[in-house]
Design a protein around this nucleic acid. Sequence first.
DNA 1: TATCCTTACGGAATTCGTAAGCATG
DNA 2: CATGCTTACGAATTCCGTAAGGATA
Lengths: 314, 314
Amino acid sequence: MNFQQLRSVRETVRQGFNLTLVADALHTSQPGVSRQIKELEEELGAELFVRAGRRFLGLTPTGEQALPLIERLLQDAENLRRVAADYAAADRGLLTVAATHTQARYALPGAVRDFRDSHPGVSLHLQQGSPRQIAELVISGAADLGIATEALAEYPELVTLPCYRWSHVVVVPRGHALADGQALTLERLAQFPLVTYEPGYTGRRHIDEAFAKAGLEVDVVLAAMDADVIKTYVELGIGVGIIASVAFDEQRDDHLVALDARHLFALNTTRVALKRGSFQRSYVHAFIQTFAPTLTPALIERALAAPAGTLIEP
Amino acid sequence: MNFQQLRSVRETVRQGFNLTLVADALHTSQPGVSRQIKELEEELGAELFVRAGRRFLGLTPTGEQALPLIERLLQDAENLRRVAADYAAADRGLLTVAATHTQARYALPGAVRDFRDSHPGVSLHLQQGSPRQIAELVISGAADLGIATEALAEYPELVTLPCYRWSHVVVVPRGHALADGQALTLERLAQFPLVTYEPGYTGRRHIDEAFAKAGLEVDVVLAAMDADVIKTYVELGIGVGIIASVAFDEQRDDHLVALDARHLFALNTTRVALKRGSFQRSYVHAFIQTFAPTLTPALIERALAAPAGTLIEP
DNA sequence: TATCCTTACGGAATTCGTAAGCATG
DNA sequence: CATGCTTACGAATTCCGTAAGGATA
């Protein structure tokens, strides 16, 4: 039994049981992968994969039970490397953060600046994507941590912890009818065409839920993945914008007016996600605590070690 | 990184940092072990062992943190083999039970007979030893499970579960002064020379505690590791015996009289011990449930997966 | 017939044990 | 000077990629 065999098995599942893709992903030859799997199965004395002739179709019951062990073996091998790397040079390395546009653009800059000052030896990579892409990046190990408001908590492979809560604001051009000082209600809002986030992004779910609960039909004339795009179209008069409050900047956005909307839409919680069972290097802890001071290393380590389903929060 | 390197590290710790002993234990050459460790340290970029010149003295902080990961890696490799073996031939294999003499002689025979009938393909090895030896056998992997009344719960590497409770009896030759029908008390007992178990065996702790609590000095003229020896000397008139109630057989021991002593000494709990984090083959679960029907596979698996310190009992 | 896995083969790299060397209590 | 780890070296094994083969949708 060796790690290359285990990697081949894990990657075969990840790549949907296509050994050719596995070989590409592992930067090796396809017959090599074929051999790795065959030799592991021979050593174990049991087949891990269901085959139809020469095609791989899925996992056998043995494979189903073996896969979590294989995942943990490879995770622990990675953890071991991290432990050593952390002792060898605690303040040098690579930190890959996966975040949504909103986080990367509005929430992270402060933490990134502070972290770069305190950890000049760590090179920081910022990956952007949808919440689900972020989750996959963290699960696959391509990113050390993910930050998003949606979806992350749905993945049992991830440990998520709350960073901060925020609400939406409504943005309109100066002089817009909604900016008349009267109370903002869902009913009034629903009378205008709206410009807001794509479904699955940045609290869009809470927006839809609020209107649905009030029995209101709304006209979303334009949906975008980030607040910059939304604000641009609001400035053009296309409709009324609904964006995260952090995404509004009094000075930069002085053509617009922001109207508090926390009484209209449920509060959102932005969460950080780490791969369950992973060991995190000290600078990863440092970064998270810079971003969300309540998330101490001890708390995070406890959450990482807990089995799926356990609730550990500050 | 490969498993042989990890095995070398684990064994080096187990063998007290003597590579020559490690080589023997792993059935390889001493320079081989030396190389495995060196290459792993080179790959990790950190030293795991503290050296004084050419001698190994102990673990570095890196090594201290790495060791639990290495242990779990090797355990999971073993677990993977067991999963596969169980699917390949669930009813064939080797079951090694480590137990004290008392358990092996008086408690286990029924379970062993039933298990042999139901699992003819499993060859059963019975290892005997002191509770601490039993614990070490299970921790090292030389035994699948351990059964004893003492000490097992002290090892964080083990998961222990209660099998049954029992009390002591006092045994005397027929016609002995204590067999006069009057109530048995610690005070009366303390007037006679005693023959009982060695310290650390079969509830001896509760015997000592009872006398100590009553402020009584006792004269243990002979201590033995098993009830057969004790009974033999009681028959010879050397003293009054205190043994586990299961160890008294009305018919076989008809030269002796057993006097109930459950009001004198605290109840004892015999426990089964498994290595924490291990996967157990189905016949191991079958054996345990034959011995202690309350210990279901689901319960045991939950206990095995729990971190040290968690209490999971029926 | 294109896709996908297995088998065959040969060179390269790795592995491992023996023998010799060296430091230390 | 005996113990215990490292280094050196050569043989054996293992590993891996290329090329060819066979099954299936």
